[in-house]
């Protein structure tokens, strides 16, 4: 959090670190995908993990996620949103594989 509003002395160090991390995570994902070092399953597991790390980078380095006026209701809201997102995607995949042999 950069709370101070007056001085211009500081370099936006946090933002630069965030950008560096997001680029790094992207290149690691691409390198893993291109190298064919691992099978499809493990690669996907790892790059999904990297994508989750990217969310954390965006939220904490760029989006001022912890700032709030009063209780941090937006964090609760987003948490429920993420639970429901997982429910929709995982649930749908689980349900809709019923006729995967057809296609």
């Amino acid at each position: 959090m950069n709370g101070s509003t007056q001085k211009h002395a500081l370099f936006p160090i946090k933002n630069v670190i965030g950008f560096g991390l997001s680029l790094l995570l992207t290149f690691v994902a691409i390198a893993l995908g291109v190298s064919h070092a691992l099978a499809f399953g493990p690669v996907m597991m790892i790059i999904m993990g990297l994508a989750v790390l990217q969310i954390i980078v965006q939220l904490f380095f760029f989006m001022h996620f912890t700032e709030s006026d009063g209780p941090a209701y937006h964090i609760i809201g987003l948490a429920i949103g993420i639970i429901n997102t997982i429910a929709i995607i995982a649930g749908t995949l689980w349900i809709m594989t019923f006729n995967s042999q057809v296609h």
């Binding site: 429920i80 649930g91 689980w94 594989t97 019923f98």
Partner: peptide, 21 residues
């Protein structure tokens, strides 16, 4: 309000999803 989100497939039990679903 939370559990209501985990019941939707009961509208099409007859689709033929797996027993687990």
């Amino acid at each position: 309000s939370v559990v209501s989100y985990f019941v939707w497939a009961h509208h099409y039990f007859t689709m033929g999803a797996s027993a687990g679903v």
